[in-house]
Amino acid sequence: MNWFIKRIGQGLFTVFAVATLTFVLVRTMPGSPSQRLASQIREQQPNMSTQEINAMVAQRIGVDPDRPLHEAYIEYMVNLAQGNLGESINYQEPVFDIIARALPWTAFVMTISLLFVFVMGLGLGAVMAYREGSRFDVGSSLIAIFLSSVPYYVAAVILIYVLAIELSAFPLSGRYPSDVEPGFTLAFVGGALYHAVLPAASFVITSWGGFALGMRGNSIQVLGQDYIRVAKLRGLTDRRIALRYVGRNAVLPMWTSFLITIGFMFGSSIILEEIFSYRGIGYYMFDSIDNRDYPVMMGTFLVITICVIVAVLIADMTYGKIDPRVEAGGDNEAY
């Protein structure tokens, strides 16, 4: 229990640190967003007074350029704590609303891809380890190495070219078919899945290899351990040995990589969603960079961070289920 509290505290601290970072970037950088925004407004409405402009800037990005640093910081933090992420310059609506609409779609694609990456990577890695040295092992190792050296956006471009443009087997862009009403209907869910295939696939194809190679190495090492021999001598079923003895112990050292991959995937959604014009949170973040829409940029950055922290927390909790030593209050050495 103590351990969970520590984890949650760490997560909150990370949110706090990132919020502070966004504040520092927005407020203090030379040519910072608040200054640029102020001059932008001045250009559009030349007869506005400085105070009015500052008030507008404060409303838009939650940082008043006029106030002293510490006061502005406290106000910014209070705003964030209330879920007020400011107002988009480009869309003229609260950043919170934009993110609330986009986030479920990113979470949808990310969950599908994470599941596939883990299942494929760990499963194939384990099979490769069991057949070490066979033609299957050598072949899949080579494929795994090659596919890991393909950047996910390159895979995305190739998938679009082959499957969406040349073969027209999958949609080129969008989140769901345009002729279907959003709702919990079969057509809508099916259509959404159909549109998610290519973005998810470009991630899965390029990421499973790393996990497969890691799992292969760990499993081979575990297979050589004495306790596996003992388990075999005890007459345990192969299935039980494979899952409980080999699988479990081989997965444990890879936990840090899992956690990093979650963050990596959310980050990569920026590039992927832009390529597929998939209106998730990454799409809006990219869009905000193109338009210098700082409130959206900072808001999406903050929300992506929070998502990663929540996902890592969930993963950490399940870690206790795989490794009972952690819940028993042991040291949390997840390597």
């Binding site: 997560g11 990370t14 640190a17 990132v18 966004t22 970037l25 956690l259 990093i260 963050g263 990596f264 959310f266 980050g267 990569s268 920026i270 590039i271 973040m285 960079i289 940029m297 900072m298 999406t300 950055f301 992506i304 961070t305 990663v308 922290i309 890592v312």
Partner: peptide
């Protein structure tokens, strides 16, 4: 480790 790398890089 939990701060997503690419968004941070892009913002900076």
């Amino acid at each position: 480790m939990t701060i997503p790398g690419l968004p941070l890089v892009i913002v900076v």
